[in-house]
């Protein structure tokens, strides 16, 4: 009985801590303004980054060589995005106010994840450019 209670409480805390931790990682990336070249290449333009762009942006980031220092963060954010997607798919399509609010919140969170993916791509592109310029000089 005690073990079951500890299990349930720990799981609730785990989800909560994991969400906060991932948000703290995402929030740090939110301060990073996207460069014009990334906006141009990805077709984002001047529009805000949407949740639907997450997969494509992450694919592009993975194609771009990087220093490897952001892989753990990408893994955590991808898990968070997928977790949110699972929750979203479980929300029934019954139009109640609370559910609509929850769905809108998930959409915003997923958009934050997409922005994180865009900043990862931006950093990796900057890294590649630096490597190329060093190579050209050598």
């Amino acid at each position: 009985m005690t073990a079951a209670l500890i299990f349930v409480v720990s799981m609730v805390f785990f989800v909560q801590f994991f969400v906060w931790y991932t948000r703290s990682v995402i929030q740090a990336s939110a301060k990073h303004a996207l460069s014009d070249s990334v906006r141009e290449i990805t077709g984002i333009g001047a529009d805000p980054v949407g949740a639907s762009q997450f997969g494509r942006l992450l694919q592009l980031a993975e194609l771009c060589p990087g220093s490897g220092s952001d892989e753990k963060r990408i893994l955590a954010v991808r898990a968070y995005f997928q977790g949110l997607g699972v929750v979203l798919s479980l929300i029934p399509r019954v139009p109640t106010r609370a559910l609509a609010k929850a769905a809108a919140w998930i959409d915003r969170e997923q958009a934050s994840c997409a922005y994180f993916a865009a900043t990862a791509l931006d950093r990796r592109m900057a890294y590649s450019r630096t490597l190329l310029s060093h190579g050209a000089r050598a």
Binding site: A3, A4, I6, F7, S10, M11, F13, F14, F17, F18, W20, Y21, S24, V25
Partner: peptide, 23 residues
Amino acid sequence: VQLVLALGVYFSATAALWALRNM
């Protein structure tokens, strides 16, 4: 903030796993 949150993730996941094993 991140040190505390990482510790929270670790403690809660570990406590849940030990409880699962106990059950």
